[in-house]
Write a protein that binds this DNA or RNA. Sequence first.
DNA 1: TATTGTTATACTCTATAACTATA
DNA 2: TATAGTTATAGAGTATAACAATA
Lengths: 162, 162
Amino acid sequence: MATKDRKTVMTDKVQVEKIDTSGEIDPGVLSSFIGYAMKRTYMTIHSDFVASLEHLGLRPGTFSALTIIVDNPDISQSQLARALAIERSGVVLIVDHLEDRELIGRHRVPGDRRAYALRATLAGRRLRDAAVEAIRKHEARVLGSLTGSEQATLRNLLARIM
Amino acid sequence: MATKDRKTVMTDKVQVEKIDTSGEIDPGVLSSFIGYAMKRTYMTIHSDFVASLEHLGLRPGTFSALTIIVDNPDISQSQLARALAIERSGVVLIVDHLEDRELIGRHRVPGDRRAYALRATLAGRRLRDAAVEAIRKHEARVLGSLTGSEQATLRNLLARIM
DNA sequence: TATTGTTATACTCTATAACTATA
DNA sequence: TATAGTTATAGAGTATAACAATA
């Protein structure tokens, strides 16, 4: 206990063989949970993902919405909410943002004057494509330590959990 | 608040014919990303994880802090911040909460009057143990579709990404 | 009555910055 | 000067609830 309060010196990485390894934290029971490994890995990947989209002015939510709209022309906001697994009220803000940037348009639906048909603009499709390329590089970077077949195995196992 | 100009944005291709009424949403290029599978799986597991701790009055952040304190008696708030990968200011709130519930105590460090030595109370250790049991059940439930060796493979692959 | 989009509001989580008291 | 803890504040992201227009 009291051996733990050894003052941590600026040497951040040097000497880790002393008795109390100042700063070393035991993950304890956490390391026995697969969910813990999953969270750590997800967080690692996610922060690199966020960084990889930053230069395009996209955040995870805006990218997801944009790419779904590109791949599902004339989708409604309610459908988009379901696809993103968020509330409709949240979709309004995202769609406002994408529309302000002229990446998508709200079009009227012939036959239902309540709903909007969302459609990407040319600029929206181009930005989506640039984002996809950035994400491919991000995945190559982040999954580079796994072979192709290991990546396939991972994808398979992940899919089987859901 | 947001600009609500519903002006029609120009698109190069204009064809407002069929609206997809099937309700089926094409994940499109998203399904080609391993990160997308990872996010979906993580979200699924995470929400079951949150639910599995709710009856104990624990949230992911408070559980993580508690279990790390149990496994690292006399850890400081700064060390805890590093372990949780959040800022020190955020740790204050979590530690306040755990201390208010008398699950941990802030103890003085002989030799450094700036720092606290965090230590779980008996109630804190018991609650942690109950949470661990709840999480084991949660993992059995959520990973039940994978064999033991598949779970080991998954853990291995996840660890190799980081 | 139900659904679509919208607004207002609030809550959680986290970050930044400034501060104090120590070191 | 640097570190530990604290406070105030702000920004995402998301949720709930109520509402108007439309079905």
